[in-house]
Design a protein around this nucleic acid. Structure first.
Length: 458
RNA sequence: GGCCCGGUGGGAGAGUGGCUAUCCAGCGGACUGCAAAUCCGUUUACAGCGGUUCGAAUCCGCUCCGGGCCUCCA
C-alpha cells in the first residue's frame, strides 16, 4: 500500500518513496528536558508514533530507524537549574525520566535511538569546523555564526526571504553578526555555565546544531523524513537545513512533516493563562489511552483544541470500542486482518486518524450487531490489528472496565446480593443495591439476558 | 508589511465535483422488571457573494471572520 504524506517543503501531498526500503529513516525533534511535558509536547510524540507504527507495518518492523533526540543543554535548563539550585544533570535526568514514563503511558513506542545533545558535542564541533572551512560560518567574539548569505536558497522551507527576516526582526541584532539573519552555532559560556573546550574557547552549542549533528551520526547525511511541531519550521528546521546541506553538499531531508498547534479551550496554551495541561497531571484523571485518542481525533496538520470535555469524549469513544471487544470475548479473532484495510488506507493517506477511528467504529458496529460468527471473527481481528497501528486497544476489555486495582470483593458481594433479590423479584432491593454501587463504588451494573450481571467502573 | 493555515449539522471532526462519514449530545422505537449497554430510526450542515459545470460544501475569483509564524516555543 502506497503511503502519501504532506511535505512542508512542497506544500503538497507526495507519494512516499523511501531511499532504502530496508531502512526507512525518521527523525523527530524531541523535548528540552527542564519541565513536565504538556499536551502540546505530546502531540508530535503521538502523531509520529502512529507514523512509526505505520512505516513498520508497511516496510517491516526491522526496517525503520526512528531517532528522537533529547535536548539536555539549553538556556532554559540553565535557568531552571539556577532557580532550583540543583545541578543541571539532576534536572535533565529527572525530566527525561518523567518524559519517558508519560509518553509510555500514552502508548508511544520508544524510538530506536534517543541521542542526547551533551553526548554529541565533538560531532557538533566537527561540523562547525567544517562549516568554517567552507566559508559558511565565521567566528566572532567567542561566538561562531552561520553566514546565511552564503546559502543561496535559505528560507525555502518557511518561505521567508532574507529581507523579510531582517525587516521583521523582533530582537536587537547582536553587533558581532555580519548579517542580521545569521544564527549562532557556538556561544561562549561563563565559568558557572555548562560548557566544553573548543577551538573558540569554553562554550556551548547553539540549539539548531544538535539536530544536524545527531541526525547525521544516526541516520546519515540524507534521510527520509524529519518531523516536529509547526512552530519549528522557522527558525529551527530552516537552520538545520542550512547547516546540514552546507556542511555535507548533499540533500538533507526528503520530506518534512509538521503537526499543528494545540490550543486549550480555544486559547493558546500558556502558563500565564493557567491553561497549561501537563500530561503528568492529566494521567491522574484519565487513562493514557484516552489522552492519546483525544490527540488523534483531529488530523495531525489541523489545529487541535484540547479540552477536558474532549478528553471525556475520548474516554467514551474508547468505552464503546472496548464494549464491542468485551461483547466478542467468546469470538476467536480470525488470523486474517483484512478487515483493518480501511484503517490502513486512512492512515496511508497522510495519517488520517479521524477517518481511521471512524473505520474502527464501523468494525465495532459489526461486532455489536450480532452479525455472523465468521463476520465477527474477521471484525475482531481487524479491530485489534487497527488498534495496534493506532496504539489503542492495548488493554484487555476486562481490565479496561474494572481497573487493575482490587476492592472488587465488596462489589462482587453486592452484585450477588442483588442477583438474589432479583431472583426473588424484590426489585426495590435490587434497585437500591444498584444505586448503592453507583454512588458508593462508581460502578455501573448491566444485566444480561441470561440473568447474570456485568459491572464496570464508570 | 511579508508568509502560512483555517471557517462543515447542537458539539467534536472526516470528506473534497454527483453516492450514509464517524463519535458525542438530543428525540422516537426495539430490548429490559426498571435500567445500562446494544441495535434501528431521526435532526440533513458545509462563512458570504460571484464564476466554471449537466451538476460545487468540493474547482476558480473576490469579500468577511478567525488563528499562526516573521530568530523562546511541540
Amino acid at each position: 500500500m502506497a503511503i502519501s504524506l504532506y511535505n512542508t517543503l512542497s506544500r503538497s501531498k507526495e507519494r512516499f518513496e523511501p531511499i532504502d526500503p530496508g531502512n526507512v529513516r525518521l527523525y523527530v525533534c524531541g523535548p528540552t528536558v527542564y519541565d513536565y511535558a504538556h499536551i502540546g509536547n505530546a502531540r508530535p510524540v503521538v502523531v509520529f508514533d502512529v507514523l512509526y507504527r505505520l512505516l513498520r507495518h508497511v516496510y517491516g518492523e526491522g526496517c525503520v530507524t526512528y531517532v528522537r533526540n533529547i535536548t539536555d543543554v539549553d538556556d532554559k535548563i540553565i535557568e531552571a537549574a539556577r532557580v532550583s539550585g540543583e545541578p543541571i544533570e539532576t534536572i535533565t535526568g529527572r525530566y527525561s525520566q518523567v518524559f519517558h514514563d508519560d509518553m509510555a503511558a500514552l502508548g508511544a513506542l520508544p524510538p530506536d535511538v534517543e541521542p542526547r545533545a551533551t553526548a554529541h558535542v565533538p560531532e557538533m564541533i566537527a561540523m562547525i569546523e567544517r562549516l568554517i572551512g567552507k566559508q559558511h560560518a565565521y567566528a566572532a567574539e567567542g561566538h561562531v555564526l552561520f553566514s546565511v548569505a552564503t546559502m543561496a536558497d535559505y528560507g525555502r522551507l518557511s518561505r521567508h526571504g532574507r529581507d523579510e527576516l531582517i525587516a521583521g526582526a523582533r530582537v536587537e541584532v547582536a553587533p558581532y553578526k555580519r548579517d542580521p539573519a545569521d544564527f549562532v552555532l557556538w556561544k561562549p559560556s561563563d565559568e558557572d555555565q555548562p560548557g566544553w573546550e573548543s577551538p573558540w574557547g569554553y562554550g556551548r552549542p547553539g540549539w539548531h546544531l544538535e539536530c544536524s549533528a545527531m541526525s547525521k551520526k544516526h541516520l546519515g547525511e540524507t534521510f527520509d523524513i524529519h518531523g516536529g511541531g509547526q512552530d519549528l519550521i522557522f527558525p529551527h528546521h530552516e537552520n538545520e537545513i542550512a547547516q546540514s546541506t552546507c556542511a555535507h553538499d548533499a540533500p538533507f531531508v526528503n520530506l518534512w512533516m509538521h503537526n499543528g498547534y494545540v490550543t486549550v479551550d480555544g486559547e493558546k496554551m500558556s502558563k500565564s493563562l493557567g491553561n497549561f495541561h501537563a500530561v503528568h497531571d492529566l494521567l491522574d484523571r484519565a487513562p493514557g489511552e484516552a489522552i492519546r485518542l483525544s490527540l488523534l481525533t483531529a488530523q495531525y496538520r489541523q489545529p487541535l483544541d484540547f479540552s477536558l470535555d474532549g478528553l471525556d469524549r475520548a474516554k467514551t469513544a474508547l468505552d464503546r470500542l472496548y464494549t464491542a471487544l468485551a461483547g466478542a470475548r467468546d469470538v476467536a479473532a480470525s488470523d486474517d486482518s483484512a478487515a483493518a484495510d480501511p484503517v490502513v488506507e486512512a492512515l496511508s493517506d497522510d495519517l488520517n486518524t479521524p477517518k481511521a477511528l471512524a473505520e474502527m467504529h464501523a468494525l465495532a458496529g459489526v461486532l455489536n450487531r450480532g452479525s455472523s460468527t465468521d463476520e465477527r471473527e474477521r471484525a475482531k481481528a481487524g479491530l485489534l490489528f487497527a488498534g495496534r497501528l493506532m496504539g489503542l486497544m492495548a488493554h484487555e476489555p476486562e481490565s479496561w472496565f474494572k481497573g487493575a486495582g482490587g476492592g472488587d470483593e465488596t462489589v462482587e458481594v453486592l452484585i450477588a446480593e442483588r442477583a438474589r433479590a432479583r431472583s426473588e423479584r424484590d426489585f426495590a432491593e435490587a434497585d437500591r443495591i444498584r444505586d448503592e454501587l453507583m454512588s458508593n463504588h462508581n460502578v455501573v451494573v448491566e444485566d444480561r439476558p441470561d440473568g447474570t450481571s456485568e459491572w464496570r467502573r464508570a
